[in-house]
């Protein structure tokens, strides 16, 4: 059995909007091992996005505890969480979320800025990853000069550049045609084969099928795991 990289203990998240309390997650227990390929599957409003935010350290749970790489992270401050995200998590978003004013290289190098790495070094690392991912010709292109598939690959390069423990992808093919989508799925398979932990959040069953473990979420709790 592999080392546990992330462990969620009885996690609950409640949102307070005015006088109404909305329980987005309740009683989530989940162990993720290093090198797993997991799909978190659920319809919109099921709480899967909230779960992604907690796994990705973008927000903290109302109750329960969360251990990431052996560290209790559920009570950390915003800035401590930012450092944890930078160290352990590589995000891939549905809408790519590239900085439109920056070139591909600068976009990929951005997480390294927050790690305090010098300009030359981070540009070199960014170029290496882009080359590896097949975008060697597009270093100085801006987002609007790239196709959707290319943009998502730049975003994946940005997620990989910090060499994170976990790649956390939120509907990564949702804005792509089927051919580009398939390419992205192949990339995730490739990383997982190299031992990277990949977590994909999706509502799409066919997408989820690529993962080795599927966790279904309904009404804020895990309804099935296979």
């Amino acid at each position: 059995m592999n080392e546990v990289i992330a462990e969620l203990h009885n996690i609950g998240k409640t949102y307070h909007t005015g006088k109404v309390n909305f329980e987005a997650l309740r009683g989530i227990n989940l162990k993720i091992e290093r090198g797993e390929y997991i799909a978190i599957l659920g319809p919109s409003g099921s709480g899967k996005s909230t779960l992604m935010q907690i796994i990705g350290c973008l927000s903290t749970p109302t109750v329960g505890s969360y251990f990431l790489a052996g560290k209790e992270v559920s009570k950390l401050s915003g800035d401590e969480l930012a450092k944890i995200r930078n160290l352990y998590i590589g995000f891939v978003f549905q809408k790519f979320n590239l900085m439109p004013q920056m070139t591909a290289v600068d976009n990929v190098a951005l997480p390294l800025v927050y790690r305090g790495i010098k300009t030359e070094e981070r540009r070199k690392q960014a170029k290496d990853i882009l080359r590896h991912i097949g975008l060697g010709q597009h270093f100085s292109h801006h987002a609007n000069e790239l196709s959707g598939g290319q943009q998502q690959r730049v975003a994946i390069a940005r997620a990989l550049v910090t060499n994170p423990e976990i790649i956390l992808a939120d509907e990564p093919t949702g804005n792509l045609d089927s051919k580009s989508g398939a390419e992205i799925i192949n990339l995730f398979g490739e990383f997982n084969a190299k031992g990277k932990t990949v977590i994909i959040i999706t509502h799409d069953v066919s997408m989820a099928r690529h993962a080795k473990r599927i966790i279904e979420i309904q009404d804020g709790s895990i309804s099935a795991s296979r």
Binding site: G56, R85, F91, R158
Partner: peptide, 15 residues
Amino acid sequence: HQIGVRMALGATTKN
């Protein structure tokens, strides 16, 4: 939105 993305990538309050 961009600020959110930067924060997700590790930007601190100070950054």
